[in-house]
Amino acid sequence: MKKLRKTLSKFPLHIVVITIALIWMTPSLGVLINSFRTSQAMKTSGWWTMFATPFNFTQWTLENYATVLATQDLARSFRNSLLISIPATILPILIAAFAAYAFSWMEFPGRQVLFSIVVGLLVVPLQMTFVPIYAAFNKIGITGTFLAIWAAHTGYGLPFAVYLLRNFLGALPKDLFESAWLDGASFWTAFWRLALPLSVPSLASLAIFQFLWVWNDLLVALIYLGGTPSVAPLTVRVANLVNSLGADWHLLPAAAFISMILPLIVFFSMQQYFVRGILAGSVKG
């Protein structure tokens, strides 16, 4: 009886959660369905009509996927995307973690001013940095190399990474660090033994988003790396499926789902770091 009451009282909760999730899913679901429909069907009838006529096989096709997968150099661009994204995710997070640690646990002159500048830099429009940075890269001869794009994504990703990590590291309790220092631990030891392990959840969420932004980036890659097949990432390939007049956009739904697979795997594999109580009891707010 009590159990039933509990289930019943939870009923509105389920309704709300499921409704929101369904609404959020609908646009993507529509494109997923359309990615399996012919270009003709996609452009003349709504994806939802397939619920009425699921067995009208003239509308279904795997051709969009076949065409996208047969794109020249697709595998190579997938590899390029990985080669770009993994270092461009790890590097800024690692570098930012050190800085965030210094900003939250070391006293030095100009600390607040420097940190507020970091926050302010979040809003710098990337377009304004392209010409000076590209010219500098060109002088040292690294335009069109992976080094250039790793450096660029690291530079552009740092402000957010420092900001987020500073917020988290700064919220850790003072006692924890002070007792460590009393025990003779150095800043270095405290960083690796205390700060980093305790901030795994925020590191994980930061990693997810930095990875996604880099993975889905088109413009920064075009500027610093270019669109030649040997270095072009997946986003550049996908954008080029469509011609300059916009024809062949019916391939984009299939392409979007193919390029989404990896980010979703990353999201699911990082989920385990969001478990309850990783810090429960050891940290106050």
Binding site: T143, L219, L222, T228, A232, A239
Partner: peptide
Amino acid sequence: EYEGTRDLNAVLNTRVEGGNPPDVAGLP
């Protein structure tokens, strides 16, 4: 080495101003 992009304005402008233009460009 062909690069196709519909962001030609931004890319070509940056390359030219940055001192490393492509050899040849197809202009719209």
